[in-house]
């Protein structure tokens, strides 16, 4: 059986890198932070496009305040999957459920995904999430991992991604980095671009103009949260059923929560059992 090239190439260590390789496409997003106004139209557009459930995000905008009164600034940092040219998530997936498309998209095959979340652990950018057990449109996938698709369904129809469409500031610019005439390629040659965690060598396809190192830094983000944000995160951990059970609320006994998490795991037995039974019924009894 011969595989289409994109599937075959997901064997081996990695998909060959395509950045700058003639004859290939490399879709990329440049985010011009000088133009980002933190309006979060991108976030809502993306959520609406895919019916993304509450508590998980394909894209989001991080916000930081800098400086001492009265010399202060606000910084925005839109985030999404980087569609890495050297994606760790693809390398670590045991079932080839996630793969790199030949044009540079890193994509999910929902019907292959077993929901093991290896890719989530592997992704250095938090770009992936497990879809909760319940969502608005029951016909869309659940309990498999999902992520930004660079809106391949739109791009293939000649449209920009939904978040680019919606971007009020015009900060998100999308196109083929390998095409020297594209806007992204021109920006790449004209402006200083930065990427997140360059030291990891993932070769992201999402790059930023005017990035601020502090908001881009993992350690800084952990250390410099407001009390409000900490509390929100703790509420999130308490109330959002992630079906992954690794969340520990700060300031509460750790091991008690570990046991609680195991209890949470046990509580998934009914809905997962239902899935198992349904599958059995569908296969043999219908």
């Amino acid at each position: 059986m011969s595989h289409p090239p994109n599937q075959r190439s997901s064997y081996g260590l990695q998909t060959p890198r395509t950045r700058g390789v003639p004859g290939t496409k490399r879709y990329a997003m440049v985010i011009d932070l000088r133009k980002c106004i933190g309006c979060m139209s991108c976030v809502v557009a993306c959520k609406a496009e895919y019916g993304v459930p509450l508590g998980v995000w394909r894209t989001w905008v991080k916000v930081a305040d800098k400086g001492k009164y009265p010399n202060t600034r606000r910084v925005f940092m839109p985030r999404l999957c980087n569609h890495c040219d050297y994606p760790v998530c693809v390398r670590n997936c045991p079932t080839q459920a996630t793969y790199k498309h030949k044009d540079g998209f890193v994509l999910q095959r929902y019907n292959r995904c077993i929901g093991c979340r290896t890719c989530m652990v592997a992704c250095p950018y938090n770009a992936r999430h497990l879809i909760p057990a319940k969502r608005t449109d029951d016909n869309l996938p659940k309990l498999v991992v999902d992520k930004c698709t660079f809106c391949i369904h739109r791009v293939k129809k000649g449209l920009v991604p939904a978040c680019v469409q919606a971007c009020v500031g015009g900060a998100r610019i999308f196109g083929d980095m390998n095409d020297p005439n594209s806007e992204v390629a021109q920006l790449a040659s004209k402006e200083k671009l930065t990427v997140l965690k360059p030291e990891l060598g993932t070769s992201p396809s999402v790059s930023y103009i005017g990035g601020d190192w502090e908001i881009m830094d993992e350690a800084h983000s952990y250390n410099n949260r407001t009390a409000q944000l900490k509390e929100e995160f703790n509420t999130f951990k308490r109330n959002h059923e992630g079906d992954a059970f690794g969340d520990i609320v700060e300031g509460e006994p750790t091991m008690r929560q570990v046991s609680k998490n195991f209890g949470g795991f046990l509580r998934t037995i009914p809905h997962k059992a239902k899935e198992v039974v349904d599958a059995f019924v569908n296969l043999y009894l219908r």
């Binding site: 991080k62 949260r225 195991f262």
Partner: peptide, 20 residues
Amino acid sequence: MDDSVIISNVFHHVAWGTTI
């Protein structure tokens, strides 16, 4: 530290938890 704070972000789950 007070003069550079993250004021908003989204939240992520720890993907592998107690079971693992």
